Measured scan of single mutants.
Amino acid sequence: NSLAEAKVLANRELDKYGVSDYYKNLINNAKTVEGVKALIDEILA
C-alpha cells in the first residue's frame, strides 16, 4: 500500500466513527504508512 492509499483508507475509517478534523489532519501529516496505522490504532482505541 502506498502512503496516499493508507491516508484515504484511514480517513474513511475515521468518518465511520465521526472523528473530528483534528485527527484527520494528524493522519494527513503522517510521513509513513506505519505512522498512519499507529495513529488509527491510537485514535480508535
Score class of each variant (00 low, 15 high):
V33C: 03
K37D: 04
R12M: 15
K31A: 14
K16Q: 07
L9P: 01
G35C: 10
L26W: 08
V19S: 04
D15P: 01
K37L: 13
Y23R: 02
Y23L: 05
T32Y: 02
V36A: 01
N25D: 15
V33K: 05
A4M: 10
G35H: 15
L14K: 01
E42A: 12
I43M: 05
S2F: 09
K31S: 14
V33F: 06
G18P: 06
R12G: 07
S2E: 13
S2D: 14
V19Y: 15
K7M: 06
Y22G: 05
T32N: 06
V19L: 13
A4W: 15
K31V: 14
V33T: 06
N25M: 09
N28W: 13
N29A: 09
D41M: 14
I40Q: 08
L14D: 00
Y22F: 11
T32K: 02
L26G: 02
T32P: 00
N28V: 06
A10L: 02
I40Y: 12
K7C: 03
K7H: 02
N29W: 04
L14H: 01
S2Q: 11
A10S: 02
G35E: 15
I40W: 07
N28R: 06
T32Q: 02
Y17D: 02
V36Q: 00
A6V: 09
D15N: 06
A38E: 05
L44Y: 07
A6F: 06
I43V: 07
Y22L: 08
L3M: 02
T32R: 02
L9F: 08
L26S: 03
A45M: 13
L44Q: 07
K16P: 03
I27M: 02
L14E: 00
A4S: 13
E5Q: 10
A38T: 10
Y22K: 10
K31C: 03
L3P: 01
G18N: 11
L9W: 15
E34T: 05
K37R: 12
A38I: 12
D15G: 08
G18I: 07
G18A: 04
L14R: 01
K37W: 15
K31P: 07
V19G: 13
N28E: 12
N28P: 01
Y22P: 03
A30V: 05
N29E: 15
N28F: 07
A4K: 11
I27S: 00
Y23T: 03
K37V: 07
I40N: 01
K7N: 01
E13K: 08
S2V: 12
L14S: 05
G35F: 06
Y17G: 02
A45C: 07
L14Q: 01
A4L: 10
I40R: 10
S20Y: 04
V36T: 02
V8T: 07
I27G: 00
A38H: 08
K16A: 09
E34G: 05
V33I: 15
K7L: 06
L39S: 01
E34N: 05
Y23F: 13
L14I: 09
N11M: 09
Y17C: 02
D41V: 13
K31R: 07
E13M: 15
E42V: 12
N1S: 13
N29P: 00
A30C: 13
N25H: 12
G18L: 06
N25S: 09
N1P: 14
I43W: 10
E5A: 07
A45L: 14
A4D: 13
E13S: 06
D21R: 08
K37M: 15
I27F: 03
Y17K: 06
A10W: 02
A6S: 05
S2T: 13
S2G: 11
S2N: 10
Y22C: 10
N28Q: 12
L26Q: 07
N29L: 11
E13F: 14
Y17L: 15
V36G: 00
V36C: 01
G35A: 15
L44G: 03
K31H: 11
G18H: 10
K37N: 10
D21K: 04
K24H: 04
R12K: 13
N1V: 15
A38Y: 07
L44T: 08
L26Y: 05
D15V: 09
Y22D: 06
V36F: 02
G35S: 11
E42R: 13
D21V: 09
E42Y: 14
G18S: 08
G35I: 09
L39G: 01
K37P: 00
T32S: 10
L3V: 04
T32V: 02
Y17T: 04
D21I: 07
L39Y: 04
K24S: 04
D41F: 08
Y23G: 03
A10Q: 01
V36W: 00
N29M: 12
I27K: 00
G35L: 12
N1T: 13
A6Q: 08
S2A: 14
N1G: 06
V8G: 08
N29G: 11
Y22N: 06
K24I: 07
E13L: 15
I27H: 00
A30D: 01
R12F: 11
T32I: 01
I40A: 07
G18E: 07
G18V: 07
N25Y: 11
N28A: 13
I43E: 00
L39P: 00
K24C: 03
E5V: 13
K16L: 10
E34P: 03
A10G: 04
N29T: 11
A38N: 06
N1H: 14
S20W: 07
N11Q: 14
L44S: 05
V19M: 15
Y17W: 15
I27Y: 01
L26F: 05
K37S: 04
L39R: 01
L3Y: 01
L39M: 07
D41I: 14
V36Y: 01
L39F: 04
I43F: 11
E42W: 15
A6I: 14
I43R: 01
N11L: 08
A45I: 10
A6K: 03
S20A: 12
E34H: 06
L14Y: 02
E42S: 13
K31Q: 14
Y22R: 08
K7Y: 03
K31N: 12
K16W: 05
L44C: 01
K24Q: 06
V19C: 08
L3H: 00
V19H: 09
G35T: 13
R12P: 01
N25Q: 13
L9G: 05
L39Q: 02
V36K: 00
K24R: 14
I27V: 07
N11T: 09
V8Q: 14
I43Q: 01
V36M: 04
Y17M: 13
S20R: 08
E13V: 15
K16C: 05
A45T: 12
Y23P: 01
L39A: 04
